[in-house]
Amino acid sequence: MVKIVDYKTYQKEDGTEFHALVLQSGVEAVKSRETGRTYLTARSARIACTFDEETCASLKGTELPGSIKKVQVESYEYAVPTTGEIITLSHRYEYVDEQESIVRDNVIDKELVI
């Protein structure tokens, strides 16, 4: 399950606005590569929607079936908000509903079948 924790408003190139819901997964324990110590975190992802601002605000706290998965993408640069450091990433997190998650986890790509 994931929870809607917030929403963001964005502007398209033509000047029109749209909203995206901010989804967050449950808490997970992760081991730091630098210190070796365990810390708690939660994955988050944004998903565009057709709702108006009032509806987006009212959806905070709503739970949805599914999960947030790490997906490999073409490398891109990202500015860390707290430090301003520019890093290169090759993944993003995206929401996957329960049915899609079952298919992704259990279906083998045709190219991998001998």
Rank of each mutant, 00 (worst) to 15 (best):
V2H: 09
D105S: 13
I102T: 10
Q99E: 09
T55P: 08
T88F: 01
I4A: 00
E34W: 03
I114H: 05
L89R: 09
R104Y: 14
G84S: 00
K70R: 04
V2L: 01
I68R: 01
D105F: 05
A20D: 00
M1R: 08
L89Q: 03
T82A: 14
K12V: 10
T55E: 02
S101M: 14
L59M: 12
A29H: 13
I86P: 07
R43M: 11
V107S: 04
I4Y: 00
K69C: 11
K60S: 05
K12H: 09
I114F: 01
S58G: 08
K12R: 13
R46E: 15
K70D: 01
N106H: 13
R104A: 14
E13W: 05
T35D: 07
E54L: 10
E94P: 02
A57P: 10
V73P: 09
S101R: 15
Y39S: 07
C49K: 06
Y95E: 02
K3M: 11
Y10V: 06
V30Y: 13
K60C: 10
E74T: 12
T62R: 11
C49Q: 03
T83R: 00
K69R: 15
R43C: 06
A45C: 09
Y39F: 11
V80I: 15
D109H: 15
S75G: 00
D14E: 14
R46G: 15
Y78A: 01
Y76R: 02
E54W: 01
K31M: 08
Y93K: 09
S67M: 10
T82G: 07
L112T: 14
V2T: 01
I102Y: 13
V73M: 03
T62G: 07
M1T: 10
Y10D: 03
R43Q: 11
E54T: 10
T38M: 11
V5Q: 03
G36W: 00
T9G: 06
E63P: 13
H19W: 03
K70Q: 03
D14Y: 09
H91K: 10
F18P: 00
I114L: 02
V5L: 10
G84Q: 00
I87H: 03
F51C: 12
E100R: 07
S25K: 05
S67F: 13
V80M: 11
Y93T: 01
I4E: 03
E98P: 15
T41R: 05
T9K: 15
K12S: 04
V5F: 00
K69N: 14
A57S: 09
T9L: 02
E34S: 12
V22W: 12
L21A: 04
I47R: 02
S32T: 05
A42Q: 08
L89G: 02
E85T: 14
R46V: 13
K69E: 15
T82M: 12
I108R: 12
Y78S: 07
R43L: 05
V113C: 04
T55Q: 08
T88N: 08
E53P: 00
I114R: 07
S25Q: 01
T55K: 13
R104L: 15
C56P: 04
